[in-house]
């Protein structure tokens, strides 16, 4: 697909955000790893849903992604609210 004008903005935002999380949890690699795990599960579910068509209900909804990340980022309000900016239907 052709690149859209604001795609680099979203990409840069994502890079900065991942970098921020990495730095914040430098001493707690398990938290960072769990965050990556949540994202990958979500992405996998989205792909399954796309391939299966409209009959498929993803096992991990946006709401559940947000809940899991909120649990992970407890006491890190800024990271959580920024995460909400990425999530569809947040």
């Amino acid at each position: 697909p052709p690149l859209q004008n604001n795609q680099p903005v979203e990409f840069n935002h994502a890079i900065n955000y991942v970098n921020k999380i990495k730095n914040r949890f430098q001493g707690q690699p398990d938290i960072y790893k769990a965050f990556l795990e949540i994202l990958h599960t979500y992405q996998k579910e989205q792909r399954n849903a796309k391939e299966a068509g409209s009959n498929y209900t993803p096992a991990l909804t946006e709401q559940e992604v947000y809940t899991q990340v909120a649990r992970l980022f407890k006491n890190q309000e800024d990271l959580l609210s920024e995460f909400g900016q990425f999530l569809p239907d947040a």
């Binding site: 979203e10 935002h13 994502a14 890079i15 955000y17 991942v18 990556l36 994202l39 992405q43 569809p88």
Partner: peptide, 27 residues
């Protein structure tokens, strides 16, 4: 400068595709 592993890069990819989907659903 960023020291990104392939895992980090895939997290960036997922996040930016989330943001794109969000934008698509809002427009």
């Amino acid at each position: 400068s960023y020291d990104f592993t392939p895992l980090d890069s895939s997290a960036v990819y997922v996040l930016s595709s989330m943001a794109r989907r969000r934008r698509a659903s809002q427009s």
